[in-house]
């Protein structure tokens, strides 16, 4: 209720609603989140190699 808010124009919101359903998203929120994540991924830095490998340790399916 009190989380961050972003303004989107009404016609854009209508488009988001329409295309999120068509594309198979469960909600317009999920669609917007995915679109933003894809853009941010292009700019974001990756985590450290060792840290991530450590996280995977013990996962039964891989060594």
């Amino acid at each position: 209720m009190f989380g961050p808010k972003i303004k989107i124009s009404k016609d854009m919101m209508e488009k988001i609603k329409k295309y999120s359903a068509l594309a198979g998203y469960s909600s317009p929120d999920e669609f917007v989140l995915h679109a933003l994540e894809k853009e941010i991924a292009k700019l974001e830095e990756a985590g450290s190699d060792e840290e991530i490998k450590k996280k995977l340790q013990g996962l039964g399916y891989i060594s």
Binding site: G24, S26, A41, A46, G47, D49, I52, K53, K55, L56
Partner: peptide
Amino acid sequence: ATSSDASRHSQYDFLSRDPKTYIPDL
């Protein structure tokens, strides 16, 4: 859980990767 295929819940494996670095992650 989601009554959806993998391309709708985005889980294809235990592992995913950061395509920029090829480093795996959960």
